[in-house]
Amino acid sequence: MSSQQHHRHQGYLTKFICMLVFLAFSSILTLSHAVVEMHEFTDLEMESDYRALIAELRCPKCQNQNLSDSDAPLAKDLRKKVFDQLSDGKNRSEIKQYMIDRYGDFITYRPPLTAKTIVLWGLPWLIVILAIFIIWRRTRAMDMKTTLSVDEQAALTAVLAQNDANNSNARMADNKDEQ
């Protein structure tokens, strides 16, 4: 191996190490963004309930963040509220209802079925069904048009025959003019 080649290899190695170091640091930085709070869970079920609730509940102060993602002081208070209520033995739906009673359906990312949400979720399906119905009606109407009744077929033949006759007459007239 020539010394030049050796040098180039070293360059690649330095670059590679630099990249590794950069990646390691950037992952540390990302980690430090996550909310770290110490909670003493009595059992695994309580912990999974806690995680599910803070993922499903939205921070009212933030526009689109759940409680687990938000650094807002209110989100911290509400996480504590969730934890305290779980410690008191409340179940998931009770805690969810507690939050909805205070902050409205806005607080949950899974709002219940109400008149408003039915319109929101049902209207697209209604439009699709309506569109399919209209397309079906129109294609059926077009199919019906292509087949003629016996009377119509007879009338058509008559019209075409008349047309042919007219045309040939006209041609004869033209020929006469030219002559």
Partner: peptide, 13 residues
């Protein structure tokens, strides 16, 4: 001071 009544009132700011 701890915002508990605020939560009961649905205060978010």
């Amino acid at each position: 001071a701890d915002g508990q009544v605020g939560i009961d009132l649905g205060v978010y700011g």
